[in-house]
Amino acid sequence: MIPAAFEYYRPTDMAGVIALLQEHGDDARVIAGGHSLIPMMKLRMADVPHLIDLQAIKGLNGIAITDGTVTIGAMVTQHEIINSAEMEKAAPIMKEAALQIADPQVRYMGTVGGNVANGDPGNDMPGLMQCLNAQFHLTGPDGDRTVDARDFYEAAYMTDREDEEVLTAVSFAAPVGGFAYEKQKRKIGDYATAAAAVQISKEGGKVAAASIAMTNLSDTPVWSDSAGAALVGTACDDAAVKAAVTAMLGDIDPTEDNRGPVAFKRHAAGIVLGRAITRAWSRA
């Protein structure tokens, strides 16, 4: 498992990155933690003649929490998410989810930016970002722009990001209420058989708002508006949970693979979501 030959660049500013992307077009890719990209290159499923390392670019690091908005630089690793006390206070679902990604070795390297930009339906952060209604900040030859996480994913490995754009940060309003990230996987280091991200807020014993997103159950993450809606106004009782699960099942479209046939995945998705809702509600 040896990748094809490539040129390696380590620019020190974003202009340099974008210039390289413009120069080489399709033949260039940025590398962040490399833990999705390098395996693909070694399998020769990704051919990247020009590899642009983002490690030396300033301004892509750090977690900032200001005025209720959480901003995470693209190069922040999953390990940093887990170890940030402010993050745990502002958006505890981030830690709960990050702990279920891969293993410590991968999490030391893998970045939030790489995880959301990658476009692999197996990645956990995209669904999580949709649940949190995050914004993705991109920069490119034509300047900066912002895209909703819920509008970013088009198909497997296909996103709204242009080839010459770089994702610089993700941001979201610090969530309120209860949360849960529930993931079923075959073993440590595995992508989800089914995973659910849930945020619920409570008012007067009833669900005030709910946001639900599912991972690895379609060729993109699935934010299920109707599943969330099914909970709003209810006391999150069994019937409401069931309604939310039913609504979610209408939105996902899993395919058979080594993790199991479609019927199993749909069942597991329902169970995982039910548990996530119950846990989130208990924390709301």
Partner: peptide, 10 residues
């Protein structure tokens, strides 16, 4: 594995 056990139960 998970899905085969699930299948048995199913």
């Amino acid at each position: 594995d998970h899905w085969r056990i699930w299948q048995t139960a199913n």
